[in-house]
Design a protein around this nucleic acid. Structure first.
Lengths: 203, 203
DNA sequence: TGGTTTCCATAACGTCCGGTACATATTCCC
DNA sequence: GGGAATATGTACCGGACGTTATGGAAACCA
């Protein structure tokens, strides 16, 4: 069939790889935030000029949404693995240890792009914030479902409040992201995770 | 003695109350963040003009530091009460319930000024961030001391890792602040607190 | 080769930013 | 009353921002 043709587009071919450019943009947004990342920062890191950026990605906001897609697909992959862990405790542990790896990688900015975008409160960031909040809500809903399954499995005590437990786990994850972005060491975060797991209900 | 004289300063008296103006500035910083708050936003909320602001407070950054002092003195008063609670559990509960009251007040912006300042990552916010990080560190050190006392009191099990526990509690508090600033309800946060307390070690 | 299409690069646009000269008021001290 | 000192209002500064117009370069099809 070949509907998505590789048949050579009409005009002059672009001289840069959009995927690489997007990855570079993600790095800038991740380290500087949406409002803190200027077009000059972005174009320099992406190795392209402003008109090329606008032609390929629309504008700054559209570029951010695409960078967020990439972030979810690549850097938040561990959250999907986490949901497939056999027990609720293993789910929580996978979430927290995965968060440490993602937020303290030596080749990526520290902290979580979602958290710094949710806490950004400038005027231009309002639609950005709404997008991130919505993505977080759907991710949290998936965790609620997983914990309900765990309760049916007898894996969580009957008395636990599922929304409370998910909000609690997300609070720890978000707090870890705040700390990761403000000077905490990997060992600091590991202590937080170990303490959390020591208190986890059941087993 | 009267060393701090009220003996009428030399020139023309200022026509506004600096304390009220500072409180208004705090409200702007709290809801918009340091970088998101423009001088126009500030002067409008404070009811003064830019030269008056610069004469009275120095510049935007100095104004922010003073607003942060006010924030600590007024809105974070509950943290000092918390340290005086009789048990470690009561300390933690006072911290968390006090955080809800401070971050979900109907007459103040939602969320925590410290958290939004620590997660702000623009270029101009670097010294701001350093200030907030340092304040947080000294506050956290006080909590470590309090928990060490609790352990001596037999109020916390011997096996608990004190830095881990304080980092854990702070993570929950910071996560609650993130959620408060991104649409969570008071009931949501109360569920998080109840869940946290259900897991608190001992008793 | 000519026409069309798409991309690249320079340079500019209008707007907002934090910060300031300047002239004018208003108070105190003498 | 006459400086000296401080506050106020207007108007402006240089610079950074996101975005775009413009002209030329490189690919395709005819």
């Amino acid at each position: 069939m070949e509907t998505t043709a590789t048949v050579a587009p009409k005009g002059r071919p672009r001289e840069f790889c959009t995927d690489r450019a997007l990855a570079a943009a993600l790095g800038v947004f991740w380290s500087k935030g949406y409002e803190g990342a200027s077009m000059a920062d972005l174009t320099e890191a992406m190795g392209i000029t402003k008109p090329s950026l606008y032609a390929a990605f629309g504008n700054k906001e559209a570029l951010f949404h695409k960078a967020l897609d990439l972030y979810e697909a690549e850097k938040l992959e561990y959250t999907r693995d986490a949901l497939n862990q056999p027990t609720a405790r293993a789910v929580a542990e996978h979430f927290m240890r995965g968060a440490i790896d993602a937020q303290m990688s030596s080749c990526d900015p520290k902290g979580c792009l979602g958290v710094i975008s949710m806490t950004a409160c400038g005027a231009e960031a309002v639609s950005i914030k709404a997008d991130v909040v919505q993505r977080r809500a759907s991710s949290q809903a998936a965790l609620v479902e997983r914990f309900e399954q765990a309760k049916r499995d007898g894996d969580l005590p009957d008395h636990v409040d599922i929304p409370g437990l998910t909000g609690y786990l997300y609070a720890i994850l978000q707090g870890m992201a705040v700390q990761a972005g403000s000077g905490a060491t990997r060992a600091d975060l590991e202590r937080v995770v170990d303490t959390s797991l020591m208190m986890w209900p059941g087993r």
